[in-house]
Design a protein around this nucleic acid. Sequence first.
DNA 1: ACGAAATAGCTCAAATCTGCGATAATTAGT
DNA 2: ACTAATTATCGCAGATTTGAGCTATTTCGT
Lengths: 208, 208
Amino acid sequence: MTTYRDTSHKLLTDYPRPSVAVDTAVLTVGDGVLCVALVQKEKSRRLPGTFVHERETLADAVLRSLHDKAHIMGLRPRQLQVFDAPNRDTRGWVISVAHLVAAPQASISQAELTPVSEVRDLDYDHDLILKLAVSTLRASYRASADPEHLLGPEFTLLELLRLHSAIAGEPLGKDTFRRHMLGQLVETDAYRPGLVGKPAKVFRHAAA
Amino acid sequence: MTTYRDTSHKLLTDYPRPSVAVDTAVLTVGDGVLCVALVQKEKSRRLPGTFVHERETLADAVLRSLHDKAHIMGLRPRQLQVFDAPNRDTRGWVISVAHLVAAPQASISQAELTPVSEVRDLDYDHDLILKLAVSTLRASYRASADPEHLLGPEFTLLELLRLHSAIAGEPLGKDTFRRHMLGQLVETDAYRPGLVGKPAKVFRHAAA
DNA sequence: ACGAAATAGCTCAAATCTGCGATAATTAGT
DNA sequence: ACTAATTATCGCAGATTTGAGCTATTTCGT
């Protein structure tokens, strides 16, 4: 395999190229509110991020940075947008591919979580990334019952309603929500008792 | 301004970095169908693309490549997704930021247009990029009257209906469409005559 | 047994949406 | 004037959605 050279006999690596970073908004629902995982760096706060390693995919870079910086493992990153302002980083020419990761709270319990409504003044363009991530997640949840599988394979309608309310950031009507969701779900044989009252039916996602 | 070095005293450019390309699906409506601009390279066809120049934004790279490769000027690129498979390009480690540009046919008349339903076997992952661009444009047009301003500032309802039908790739009901659109439009004082029959009212977008 | 709380879901009235037939107005051609 | 074509839109019936009141069932505690 001969290394490719162009018509000027130059390698691709002979040309100027930006450093490519990934920055990730890790969103979860905790205590009924939508939260984001942040990392501290000196006196400031930011989203977890890293530079892409040689021949590494962006998703692998995201997962590596979450593991290294926020003790988070095993998630499914979703690309949002490339932030490419040439002066966005004082260290040099850096572009960043913003990602969204949504995770159940239990799987990111070691991370520092902040309700998204309370986040202020993040580094770089991370405020923008967070805003984009939140609106993307909200759109996802408007379109589908639990696209990011935050609730696991089985769940009650109340759990699903609470999840959706937290993500939407507002209360949702119980019966209207139920009617919307039923078409996407199937009942299992199981019931899940609460503290008091009738046990709730357990559902799972209908086959695609 | 001292050049930044990290804790190992290395410059950012001392680390391996991918070449960053842009590839663009330029979509337009011509003769009632949704078309894409393609470029020929030897015996194959692809979307117009280029490598990002030093300290250049992605959007500027898109516009430069459209001007140089397809004689297209003055448009508004929209990011779709980064294609980052490490082996996607035989020449080396190249990631590509896929873009969508939607343009009136008149502004890209020098480009080679192909109806999107007839496109087959593009280079690299360009089939995927085109598919993503088409679905993105369709979603945009489902949500708004003319988000990409393909019709210019003023238009008749029939022009708008034809545009939407072409983008959707299917006929749309005339009166239902009208009722949906009216909330987003205001009438001008003008009328636009056809070949025969009553002149049509001319509309513009309602203020945001 | 009774009361309270939680789940499930039915019913209803009102609002909204959809597809389409019908009508009125406007233009060009004969 | 008449015919044909185009635009604009109203009204209608039927379908669908929405918000909420109400009832039945199930569980726990007294």
